[in-house]
Structure formats: C-alpha cells, structure tokens
Amino acid sequence: MSATVVTLWLINVLLDTFGQLSFKAAAAGHGLGEGAARWKAMARRPWIWIGVGCYVAEFVVWLAFLSLVPLSEGVLLGSINIVAVMVAGRVLFNEKFSPLRTAGILLVAAGVAVVGLS
C-alpha cells in the first residue's frame, strides 16, 4: 500500500470511530424522552451533528480510498472499523469484553493485517 492509501485508510478509521462514538454520546443517558421527543432532544446535542459531520467526511475519504484500491481489498481493509469501534467502546464507555469477543476482535485484526501487509 502506498503512503496515500495508508493515510486515507487511517483517516477513514478515525472518522468512522469518532462518528460512531459521537452518535453513542448523543443517544446515551437518561431524560431524553421517547419517540419524536427523543429525536428532538438528541438534535439539540452537538454530538449528533459532530457525528453527521464525521460521516459526511468519511463518505468523501472512502471514495478517494476506493479510487486507489480494488473494491475486494477495500472492504476487507475497512473491516478494521469493527475493531476500532469496539476497542474505543471499551476504553470510553467501559463496555465489557468476553473471551469470545476478544477472539473475534483479534481474528478480524489479524485478517486485516494479512491483507494490508501482503
């Protein structure tokens, strides 16, 4: 992989993870109400708009990334997003890792490494 491809890949992971975490932050907590009221309450939180901004930026970065790598390789490399979000969830939201979950994360990371380093 060229330096440009690696950079785009890293930016994509960062944007995806930060976007997901922002959505989580927007949706987390009590007192948001139910149904339409809940959506309105979330729309007043800056986090949801930060999340949307990340996703729009990710959209463009992903298109640039796919211009440079074959689609089959692109989706495999993109699987790292699963790992990044789960690790971040553990660090920031204290989500638990069962042994099976750890195994799954390691397998996905190993698979991405095999494709990326080939």
């Binding site: 390789e73 099976l100 979950r101 195994a103 799954g104 994360i105 397998l107 996905v108």
Partner: peptide
C-alpha cells in the same frame, strides 16, 4: 463486475475476518 483477482493473502485475510465476525455475532 470489476474483474478483480482475489489472491491468497486476500483469501486468508477474508477467512480470518469472517471467522472474527461470526465470533462477535455469537458473543
């Protein structure tokens, strides 16, 4: 559609990733 070639590293990598996703789904 795009005539891409799937090499051995991609096959091994995808097998690992799919196994990982299945583990995560079960967990």
């Amino acid at each position: 559609l795009f005539g891409e070639k799937i090499g051995t590293p991609q096959l091994i990598g995808s097998a690992l990733i799919i196994a990982g996703i299945v583990c995560l789904a079960i967990s």
